[in-house]
């Protein structure tokens, strides 16, 4: 590997810059690109809260920040990558997961997080979501579900509840929404959790757990979009939506995900919790074991040779390449 990536400690908490000792600051700030603030999100939006939890989770599990990459798609949550002071990739609409798949497989030492919204991950990107879960690529997917397309002005999404008014369902939504946790579970994710932006401690812990899992982990964050969903559907401002999360969420750790349907702005409980936590060989583990079995000594695992290490190829020198 190149000099920049060797010899890094990877298990301790990230040390704060010395300057912070004199004047304590918000511990999340150093995870942010402060030269890009203020951000674009509306007052009452839940995305910033999720970022706060994410930063604290990263802090808690002590991943070296040089080895952590975040990939976003398009939309309000798609802007997260741009605000995190990490190697960060703002990709195309719906394609954060396949980009992240290539990134992770081509450098297995990276921890790769996909951070995007419900429209991006479950509508246009839905096929990639299920296939990455099926392959069990070692990715952590954080899906901020605000039940609508915010960036484009509040259109109906595959997560929008029945009857809800959106700009493209002016007479109410007639399609059943996805239960994203059930979907991720069914497709093979090794870790599946759901919290709301009210549950900041629990969310932080679940993201920490997701980051520590090997394989495809999925964390759904229910978040208010007061500007484009709440206002139109008479559910109030950001605070009112937080209150709704507080009052109706019911913690159901370990419950079967088929039992976790809910109607976010209707009636009845909103099941939240750590639903799935299991182990299954991740894609590269299985690939390496499988190829070693099939090819024996002939197998050269990926990463033995990379573009900047070709000089080492001389060790294979022989009369014919």
């Amino acid at each position: 590997m190149s000099a920049q990536t060797t010899g890094r400690e990877t298990t301790t908490r990230n040390p704060a810059p010395a300057a912070d000792c004199a004047a304590p600051e918000n511990p999340v700030l150093r995870y942010l690109r402060q030269d890009r603030l203020p951000h674009i999100w509306c007052a009452g939006c839940g995305i910033g809260t999720s970022v706060n939890c994410f930063a604290r989770a990263v802090d808690a599990c002590g991943i070296h920040l040089d080895q952590l990459a975040v990939v976003s798609g398009i939309g309000c949550t798609g802007r997260v990558a741009g605000y995190l002071k990490l190697d960060s990739f703002h990709t195309t609409h719906g394609r954060a997961i396949p980009f992240a798949t290539g990134l992770k497989l081509a450098n297995p030492s990276l921890k790769v997080v996909v951070y995007s919204g419900d429209g991006d991950l479950a509508a246009i990107g839905g096929n990639h979501l299920i296939h990455a879960a099926r392959r069990n690529v070692d990715l952590t997917v954080i899906c901020v579900n605000n039940f609508t397309y915010g960036m484009t002005g509040g259109q109906v999404a595959p997560t929008t509840p029945l009857q809800a008014v959106a700009t493209t369902t002016p007479y109410g939504n007639l399609e059943e929404p996805f239960n994203l946790c059930h979907l991720a579970d069914s497709a093979g994710a090794v870790y599946v959790a759901r919290w709301t932006t009210y549950h900041v401690r629990q969310l932080q812990k679940s993201i920490t757990r997701a980051l520590q899992k090997r394989g495809f982990s999925f964390v759904e964050v229910l978040a208010p979009c007061p500007t484009l969903y709440g206002r139109r559907n008479r559910v109030g401002d950001g605070l009112a939506m937080q209150r709704l999360f507080k009052e109706r969420a019911v913690v159901k750790n370990g419950v079967a995900t088929r039992e976790t349907n809910f109607d976010i702005y209707g009636h009845g409980p909103i099941p939240v919790g750590d639903f799935i936590d299991r182990d299954r060989p991740a894609f590269l583990e299985r690939y390496n074991a499988h190829m070693a079995r099939a090819l024996g000594d002939q197998f050269v695992p990926y990463g033995d040779i990379t573009v900047d290490e070709k000089a080492e190829a001389d060790r294979f020198a022989g009369p014919e390449g």
């Binding site: 195309t92 394609r95 992240a100 798949t101 290539g102 990134l103 992770k104 081509a106 450098n107 296939h131």
Partner: peptide
């Protein structure tokens, strides 16, 4: 990959990992 769209962006993720 699951389709050509995924293929054409997966390679770009790999490139930004150094491949």
């Amino acid at each position: 990959m699951e389709d050509e769209i995924a293929s054409s962006i997966a390679i770009q993720g790999a490139v930004w990992a150094g491949a």
